[in-house]
């Protein structure tokens, strides 16, 4: 198998997703540069970093074992219960409000201007982190679980209306035509053809969202919007790290149980 050198091209370059190699390296260099710039920009001194690591050992030893006085324990239970209740109410409220938004944002049902309004509502509610919404709600309606419920419900609207509107866009329009053909009104069309098609999905999504809201309800208290979060924040501010670690463990436990229960319930529904 003789290959004379020079008779066949000995050069080959891997085709890249970029236009050519230079562009590729420029893009890589830009990314690297930006990361380095980011690093420089937050001004981490190695000294501070090392002290933090040392502090980690102290903190962990201060956190162990997790503990609480009987009074603190009661407070924690109250907070947890409040979080769970908040998540249930917020999920329900959010779903109720999201239904009209979902129909607005379904391009096969809504006229163009309404569709755009619906989509914007979804985009805005989805873009803000639940804690941002919560901190604003606290100022609007005062400290306490109401602010948390409103914040979680607000986030639920964005999540739910988006998925639901996609679901509506996928539905079989043949059935709608059938009902309209026998003389049904628009409302009847929604009730008898659209709703039955999407109900199983709605239940599944509700359970899923309940799980998410439960997670969030444990932290919105950090900005004063009710639930266990405020108790956790206070324990940190009082350097009562044994109590903090207990609360964190309980939160982790609740979140894990919620996740498992939600997964189980969704499997049962489908």
């Amino acid at each position: 198998m003789a290959t004379q050198p020079g008779s066949v091209d000995g050069n080959w370059e891997r085709p890249t997703a970029f236009y050519n190699r230079t562009t590729k390296y420029v893009v890589y260099a830009l990314i690297t540069g930006f990361v380095l710039y980011s690093f420089w920009n937050i001004r981490v001194s190695p000294d501070r970093f090392l002290r933090g690591l040392g502090g980690g050992v102290t903190l962990v030893s201060n956190m162990l074992p997790p503990a609480a006085t009987p009074m603190q324990f009661d407070l924690m239970v109250q907070g947890i219960v409040e979080s769970i209740l908040m998540s249930i109410i917020a999920t329900t409220l959010g779903i109720v409000v999201s239904a009209p938004v979902a129909f607005m944002a379904a391009n096969n049902l809504a006229p163009r201007p309404i569709y755009l309004v619906g989509r914007s509502i979804i985009a805005v509610t989805r873009s803000f982190h639940e804690l941002i919404v919560a901190i604003v709600m606290v100022k609007a309606v005062g400290f306490g679980p109401l602010a948390g419920v409103l914040a979680l419900a607000f986030k639920t609207v964005g999540f739910f209306a988006k998925l639901l509107s996609e679901e509506i866009e996928d539905i079989d329009t043949g059935q709608m035509d059938a009902i309209e053909a026998v003389g049904g009104s628009r409302m009847q069309v929604y009730l008898y053809s659209v709703l039955p098609q999407i109900i199983p999905r709605i239940i599944g999504l509700s359970i899923y969202r309940l799980d998410i809201n439960l997670r969030h309800s444990t932290v919105v208290g950090i900005v004063g919007a009710g639930g266990i979060g405020i108790t956790l924040l206070n324990s940190f501010q009082k350097y009562d790290y044994q109590y903090s670690s207990l609360i964190i463990l309980v939160i982790v436990g609740i979140v894990m149980i919620g996740e498992a229960a939600s997964a189980y319930a969704r499997r049962r529904v489908q």
Partner: peptide, 26 residues
């Protein structure tokens, strides 16, 4: 670095020709 020997690249082209796959190397 995918820095192949140019002799290997030439051989690869030659082998691809032998198995009837000229021109699909990319």
């Amino acid at each position: 670095r995918r820095n192949f020997d140019s002799e290997d690249i030439a051989t690869a082209r030659e082998v691809l020709r032998r198995v009837g796959l000229e021109g699909v190397e990319n």
